[in-house]
Design a protein around this nucleic acid. Structure first.
Ligand SMILES: [Zn+2]
Ligand SMILES: [Zn+2]
Ligand SMILES: [Zn+2]
Ligand SMILES: [Zn+2]
Lengths: 137, 137
DNA sequence: CTTGAAGCTATAGTGGCTAGAGGGATTATA
DNA sequence: TATAATCCCTCTAGCCACTATAGCTTCAAG
């Protein structure tokens, strides 16, 4: 049996976050010690590691909740699990595209200032005037 | 003089967001009509457009607040404005790098499932086992 | 003068945590 | 066994940048 601190160290999930996940119903309330402290089993550690991995991959809590529910039914079709992964990949790709556009614009803005005062500053001018931007963002 | 709705249409900033910016002190409380409704001048429209452009470029409210304060002092050096832009560019580039790693991992996960049931699902397996991941994320 | 859109304030909710206050439990050492 | 250090408990509030709702008032067009 692990204390919440040990579980935290083993999974890399911070202690208040573990309690938060319990409150959100992502993990069930564990056993308690005689003095009312949480005590976790190995199965609970694995579940938390699954959650952590999902979060590290950028999945939302709700996606993870659904994947956890699915993973409890080994005989069911995995179409929905595949869809969650595919949808999330699409979201990440869109984010990358958006950020690349921003990067282009910001690289121009951040390197374009040849002046020395605010009155001549290309950064300030660029923010005042979206017409200087190449892409629509 | 513009009503808050007209200002919203002209800048693309939603009405509740304009009120929120006022509350945050990013824009000053405008004149009011006889019936207590907000009335904006062209100068206020330009200030809001500046804010909107900053947000579209991903700057934080605090960065924008600082840039607005700087822009009021045309004779001062613009070093700080340039720094805000450069720092933000660096943040965006880091985000892109992180998302590209995620994309790689997710592309593998989302396209790797050859099974049909949860029990054989590569998505579920990948989440359970970080060892399958190439990069540390 | 009526109607419907638009505006007002105040409060609470979003996601995913994180921080702090004010205590109780456990464990290691003396 | 005493004590001190560390850990853990609950509860509440805060973070960011909005967004939504409720219950009301004002405005502009016909
Ligand atoms: Zn400059
Ligand atoms: Zn622009
Ligand atoms: Zn599958
Ligand atoms: Zn991994």
């Amino acid at each position: 049996m692990l204390s919440i601190g040990e579980l935290s160290r083993e999974t890399g999930v911070k202690v208040p976050t573990i309690r938060y996940y319990e409150q959100m119903g992502l993990i069930t309330a564990p056993e308690r010690s005689a003095g009312n402290q949480r005590r976790y089993s190995r199965a609970e550690l694995e579940r938390l590691a699954f959650i952590r991995h999902g979060r590290d991959l950028g999945l939302s809590i709700e996606d993870i909740r659904e994947l956890l529910e699915l993973s409890a039914i080994p005989d069911q079709t995995c179409a929905q699990a595949n869809k969650i992964a595919a949808d999330h990949l699409a979201v990440i790709r869109e984010k990358i595209l958006r950020l690349k556009k921003l990067e282009k614009e910001l690289a121009r803005i951040a390197t374009g200032c040849k002046g020395h005062t605010i009155g001549e500053c290309y950064v300030i001018e660029s923010l005042s005037n979206h017409g200087l931007c190449a892409d629509g963002h």
